[in-house]
Structures are given as structure tokens and as C-alpha cells.
Amino acid sequence: MRAVLSKSPGGPETLVVEDVMDPTPAKGQVIIEVKAVGINYPDALIIEDKYQFKPERPFSPGAEVAGVVDAVGEGVKNVRRGDRVIAVPGWGGLAERVAIKADQLIPIPDGMDFETAAAFIMTYGTSYYALKDRANLKAGETLLVLGAAGGVGAAAVELGKAMGARVVAAASTNDKVEFALELGADNGLIYPSGPMDKAAQKELAGEFKLATGRDGADVVYDPVGGDYAEPALRAMDWNGRYLVVGFPSGIPALPLNLTLLKSVSVVGVFWGAAVMRDPAGHAANMRDLMAFYAEGKIKPRISKTFPLEKAADAIKALSDRTAMGKIVVVTED
């Protein structure tokens, strides 16, 4: 089978496509014939050894797949050959087949295609866990979403609206803000690209406060980090919850005196670890998300698809932060 391999640490240009041995299912595992792979920011980090997990090389990136069960290992009762399923292996997905534990599979609903299925779990799973379990977002509250046109940011915009919040979308270009408004955001603003000095950060804090209203944001969803974090924190309301999701712009140094003065909670969001620690909670969240999808309240926006041979270009497009919504790799032309 064909597989995209990381043989040494580095950017997308270090990836190669090679023929490798087909996997066989161990006890409790199935083999999925991969049809589509959702590309996520951890894919860019893991090949550079910058992610929380560091698999032994050579390995395939690709944390989120959709496909068909091709073989079933000993003891597997919950699925059978031919079932359409979604899986989140963490890595290994950028290949024509992948082995995964059967108890980690999620059935693909009728009417959902493989590309949509591959773009669904990680972004919505992360954002719903953040907003529901970590922030306890309530209807009527104001949610400020940074990076609102990216994968998790776009999901946060949709989910915030589905949960009854007033959503303010912030992004780096007019096109990205317009995209977020199309997803349902109530208001939007453009923030500057690149590093900001203290004066620029103070100005941005004022713009965030103006956009979120007199009292500021009840919840900040931050998958960006860097110089955007402090202005967002300054624009928060009393008892606000600041969600730490990611750091593509760098790890910020937050002034903790602001958390005291505003009684703000800074809350970490590590969805992958939460899934492993609380599988029952994860399953309940997945049921909620599938219900939102069935009701038409959420739907992945796939901006571009790439063939397996161009998977490196897909990861590069995500790393360059030029994509809006989700990027998907398909195994068949």
C-alpha cells in the first residue's frame, strides 16, 4: 500500500510517499481502507517533533480518517467488514490502510460523505469539549473566537451559535472574517498580522472590547496565542473563561494580574488527552455533535482537497495559515 512517511524531523517538504507492507489486525483491532484524511495543525507539529506525542520513525502523519472496515481482528463484535467509519488514530492516517482499535470507531451517519466525515471529529470534538466542558458556555453569553476561519476556530463559531451564544469572530483578513460571518458569527473584526508592540496590543484590546460589547467577552477561544492573547484577555468580562487551545503564533506570557483583577479563569484545552481519560464523556459529546449535524447547525467547510501524493502540500497549506475551514486528503483520484 502507499503511505506518506516522516523519516526525519522537519517540515512538509521532508515527507515522502512510499510503498509499505499492508497492516494486519491484532486482537481487538480492525483495518480501515482509508478514503479521506482530515488535515489538522497537529499534523504539522508531529512531523517536526513539536507535538505532545513523538511516534517512532518512520511513521505516517494523519490523525483523522474516514473509510471502510476492510478486515476485522479477533474479538471484534461492534463492527464488521464493509462498515463506514470515522477514526482518530492520532497518526498513521495518511496511508491507504490503517490499523486501529475497534472500540475507537464512530459510525458515519447515512448521507455523510467520506470527505465530510474526515473533517468532522477533531475540530468539532476539540471545540465542543472546550466550550461545553471547559468553559461551560451558556446561552446569551458573548464568545470571542480568535483564528475564526481556521479549522477549530470555524467549528467554535458554529458551535457557539448552536449553543446560543453571541459570537464575535476575529481573523487576520477581511476574507476570513467574511467566512466566519457566513458561518453565523454575529460580529467580526480584522486583527493585524505579525508581531505587535505594546501600543498595538493595547489598541487591539480596545477593538476587541468594542466588538464584544460594554462588558467584554465571557469566553475567549484562543487557538492562536502569541501577541493576540493579552489583548483578548484585557477585553474579558468579570468571571470570564479564557480557553488555551493552541500556539501557532507563539506561546504567550500572560500578565496574571489581569486574571486577578477580572476574576478570569485561564483554562487549558487538551482534547486528545480528555478523550483517553473520559471515553464516556467523549461518546456523549459525539452524540451531541451528530445531533447538531443532523439538525443542520454544523457542517464542515472543506476549502480544498489533495490527493495522497500531495499530502505534503496539504500540510503546508495548513501551516501557512492560508486555508479557511478544513483541508482534506483523499486516497483515490
Rank of each mutant, 00 (worst) to 15 (best):
M1G: 10
R2I: 12
R2F: 13
A3W: 02
V4R: 09
V20G: 03
M21K: 12
M21C: 06
K27L: 10
G28C: 04
I31D: 03
I39W: 02
E48W: 02
Q52R: 13
F53W: 12
P55G: 09
S60L: 10
P61L: 06
A63C: 11
R81N: 08
R81M: 14
G82C: 12
R84L: 05
I86L: 12
G90D: 03
G92M: 00
R97E: 14
V98N: 01
L105Q: 03
I108G: 01
I108R: 00
D110S: 15
M112C: 06
E115Q: 12
T116R: 00
A119V: 00
F120Y: 07
M122R: 01
T123H: 05
Y128N: 01
A130L: 14
K132M: 09
K138F: 10
G140Q: 13
E141G: 11
E141L: 13
T142R: 10
L144I: 10
G147A: 03
A149Y: 07
G150S: 15
G150N: 05
V152F: 09
A156K: 07
E158W: 07
L159P: 04
K161E: 12
K161S: 11
R166Q: 14
V167Y: 04
A169G: 08
A170Y: 00
S172N: 03
T173D: 01
T173Y: 02
E178K: 00
A180D: 00
L181S: 03
E182A: 10
A185T: 07
I190Q: 03
P192D: 14
S193L: 11
G194M: 11
M196Q: 15
A199P: 02
A200N: 08
Q201G: 06
G206L: 09
G213K: 08
D218F: 08
V219M: 08
P223H: 03
P223A: 11
V224I: 15
D227K: 15
A229H: 00
A232S: 07
R234E: 15
R234L: 15
D237Q: 13
W238M: 15
W238Q: 10
L243E: 04
V244W: 04
G246R: 01
P248E: 12
S249T: 05
K262Y: 03
V267M: 13
A274K: 02
N285E: 11
M286N: 06
D288E: 15
E295N: 13
P300K: 07
R301G: 03
S303H: 10
L308D: 01
A311H: 02
A314D: 00
I315S: 04
K316C: 04
K316E: 12
S319M: 13
R321F: 09
V330I: 13
T331Y: 06
E332V: 15
